[in-house]
């Protein structure tokens, strides 16, 4: 049998990794829940945000955690502009077109990053990167613990925003009944752009939380985008608790899959889960929409 400490460490690592997946997926599930579109540009926008954090640190010496407000606002503005100026205009109201436009955007961003930064990987060097905490014989990196707590917090904040705020009510109205929302005077285009902006702002936060322990390169989004989709599909498109739960499950699946079958097959496990969920339960585990 396996050493219990190995299982314990697998559990901890799975949960920590899963929180990061959840963080990336939260924005995606909001965008799906309202716009009913699949944002293929999600991974490359995360990459862009990570480069943003990298530049803020390397050019201006801003600590990634201190950069959080800047990144959240910056990414919100970018997302709002992308949706209002490009995606909604190019889509002509057809889902397939949105799929293609977001794919096009992701290709552009990714390759511009390749052009400006080349394929090199970049990291930022913060003094606390290797600070860790020992819990029952397993070392937990503090930045990853912070990311874990932040994922819970952000999921909670998003949920509150959607349930309690005026913007949230408008978002729910648009998600449920677009025409009706228009009739009661809600500016639907604006709400669409706000939802997309908030979804992308989540990526800004995720980037700040990731950078202390991750490295960034132009295709880093790839590693996340399919996993984020898996999380969203698993948790139920448009559900924040679902995204959180889905993220943690996928993290565990990867961690234990890697433990028992080797690292690459742990990754396959994720995609197999994805495929199986798409086929048999496309409404996800918690299939509620925003």
């Amino acid at each position: 049998m396996l050493d219990p400490i190995l299982l314990w460490s697998g559990l901890v690592n799975g949960l920590l990794q899963g929180a990061i997946y959840a963080l990336v997926a939260l924005g995606l599930t909001l965008i799906y829940g309202v716009l009913h579109i699949i944002n293929f540009a999600h991974g490359s926008l995360l990459m862009l945000a990570m480069y943003g954090v990298f530049l803020l640190f390397s050019q201006f010496g801003i600590d990634p955690y201190a950069a959080l407000p800047i990144m959240v606002v910056g990414m919100f503005v970018l997302g709002y502009g992308l949706q209002r100026g490009l995606i909604s205009r190019a889509s002509h109201g057809r889902d397939e077109n949105i799929l293609l436009v977001t794919l096009g955007i992701s290709i552009v961003i990714e390759n511009l990053a390749l052009f400006f930064f080349q394929g090199d990987t970049r990291t930022i060097d913060v003094p606390y990167a290797f600070d860790s905490l020992e819990v029952f014989g397993v070392f937990i990196a503090i930045p990853r613990l912070i990311a874990f707590a932040a994922a819970l917090l952000i999921a909670g904040l998003l949920w509150l925003m959607i349930q309690r705020s005026d913007v949230g009510r408008a978002i729910r109205a648009v998600a449920k009944e677009k025409q009706g929302a228009r009739l009661v005077g809600i500016n639907v285009e604006h709400i669409y752009a706000v939802s997309y902006g908030v979804g992308i702002a989540c990526l800004g936060a995720a980037a700040c939380l990731l950078m202390p322990t991750y490295l960034v390169y132009p295709t880093v989004g790839h590693a996340f985008v399919l996993i984020a989709f898996t999380v969203v599909v698993l948790g139920g498109m448009g559900s924040f608790p679902g995204a959180l739960l889905g993220g943690l499950l996928i993290g565990l699946c990867e961690s234990f899959g890697g433990l028992f079958l080797g690292e690459s097959f742990g990754q396959i496990g994720i995609f197999l889960v994805f495929i199986v969920v798409l086929l048999f339960r496309p409404s996800g585990l918690l299939g509620s929409r925003v």
Binding site: V101, L103, I105, E110, P218
Partner: peptide, 22 residues
Amino acid sequence: DTPGLNLALYGALLVVMVMFLP
């Protein structure tokens, strides 16, 4: 022969086509 620029053009073209010439 700069890496990326080529494909960035492809991506932009995809957006433009869907937008203006479906």
